[in-house]
Amino acid sequence: MTELAETQINQHWSDIAAKAQSGDAAAYRTLLSDLVPVIRRSVIKSLPNPQNADDVVQEVLISVHKALHTYDPKRPFMPWVQSIINFRKTDYLRQHYAQRENMKLSLDDPDTPDYLVISGHNGSTKDIEDAFDALPDQQKKVVELMKIKGYSAEEVSKKTGMSVSAVKVSAHRALQKIRDRL
């Protein structure tokens, strides 16, 4: 995202928040509705059970409502709302882990959190091997030396005769290809 676009987005948030502060219900509805995916995206990775994300989303919305008077429209909106999100998320996690049963994990039947499973993918290392095999030979060699054997870019450069920047670019492109394939 360019700096200009980011500034415009920030300005948009600040504008609708200022309108909400002045009592504009339509702007307030837009603000809260637009915030829902932002909050959800922000909390979902940190929760032990992503199904509970909406509970936190609701808590955050209520907190935004209660703290609306503390927002200064001259300042950016996102840091303000992000600090509320972090606060409520921490609160939620504290309560969650305070319950004894949430601290236990059965080893007989471990529940893999949903976010660790990519839908439509069986999660097998075979897929990674296949993606790796599909790489061109040079990229395969670079990835093997840098990411599997742990050589530095300079060392790989000496071994392969490529320049250091070419090694870095090659490694980056190779990982991107593996990621796309998975």
Partner: peptide
Amino acid sequence: MTDNDIDKTIDKLCDGLKPVKPCCP
């Protein structure tokens, strides 16, 4: 909790909206 519940929460919050004056700490 579903999207419907969140929509209801937003409705409730919008209904309870009153103009507020930004505070200056």
